[in-house]
Design a binder for these strands. Structure first.
Ligand SMILES: [Mn+2]
Ligand SMILES: [Mn+2]
Ligand SMILES: [Zn+2]
Ligand SMILES: [Zn+2]
Lengths: 144, 144
DNA sequence: TATATTAATGCAATCTTGTTGCAAAAGAGA
DNA sequence: TCTCTTTTGCAACAAGATTGCATTAATATA
């Protein structure tokens, strides 16, 4: 799943920041770039181990936070009260998410633009819209 | 904020269930009925204390879960990974929520019906839509 | 290449939210 | 009032996430 070229891509992206290029950052960003779903801390930790990375939990949290700060990733708060992370390819994080109730994976739906019938009550000042769809992902739908 | 009449209203609602009418349930439901925002466990605990209720944390969790099961309340998973609870007046929980970034309160927007331009990618099977708007609530908007 | 500076890491401790098991207490019907 | 069940309190536990601080490592500079 995570191949060497993703670590190369990660390295290139990291060059563009003014932070240090460390194994943790390379590894984590590489993993995010290779994933097709938003990953939880646990999932990232496991994938990292599989690739031989051995940084600890706290380092992982800090690397992820840093990537989010730098705009190289974004995080989504799931209904299970865990954060999930996704590498964003320069795109502003303005899209909906799909949470599969069967496999528990979270997918970013880049092209789903919700249109609201804005009957927002007076006085509210809107800044951001978070849309989470729930149901079954394509893979799980096909299985049954 | 929470007045005696809400405890009376709570009592009446609880009669309609087939569970026992206990101080914890009366107090919690009364607090939810009196609130104009969805409350976190912590907030409910504090309000309960202010009213002289002294049930413990676990009892509160269980009372809330029970109220949700009974359909007398609904819970919302916030972006801060805590549950927030709101007494629902028989209305099916099919509405958007507004999370104020300043006061951190969450409001139910009963009348905001989001309409989607459904460009949902093929294969996804949709079951539920959660919409959370973020920004500033009327009170916080006015303050500044 | 060697050194100095500062940012990032590892580790242990801590916090927060929420859950579980079980004995004791209390609600509700008889 | 008695009996049967449900609900509660308490202590322990669990998972996700955060903090403080000494050590280590990345990078700039000499
Ligand atoms: Mn996303
Ligand atoms: Mn609501
Ligand atoms: Zn799935
Ligand atoms: Zn507000």
């Amino acid at each position: 799943m995570t191949l060497p070229q993703h670590d190369q891509a990660a390295r290139v992206l990291l060059q563009q920041s003014n932070g240090r290029i460390t194994p943790a950052r390379i590894g984590v960003l590489g993993i995010l770039l290779a994933a097709n779903a938003a990953l939880s801390h646990q999932e990232i930790e496991q994938l990292a181990l599989q690739q031989g990375y051995t940084f600890d939990r706290v380092t992982l949290y800090r690397a992820l936070d840093w990537l989010v700060e730098q705009g190289m990733a974004h995080k989504i708060s799931g209904a299970d009260r865990t954060w999930r992370y996704n590498a964003q390819a320069g795109i502003p994080h303005q899209h909906a998410h799909f949470h599969c109730k069967q496999c528990e994976q979270v997918f970013c739906l880049e092209n789903l633009q919700p249109a609201f019938l804005f009957a927002l009550p007076p006085g509210y000042q809107l800044e951001q819209v978070d849309v989470t769809l729930q149901g079954r992902c394509p893979a799980c739908t096909q299985q049954s």
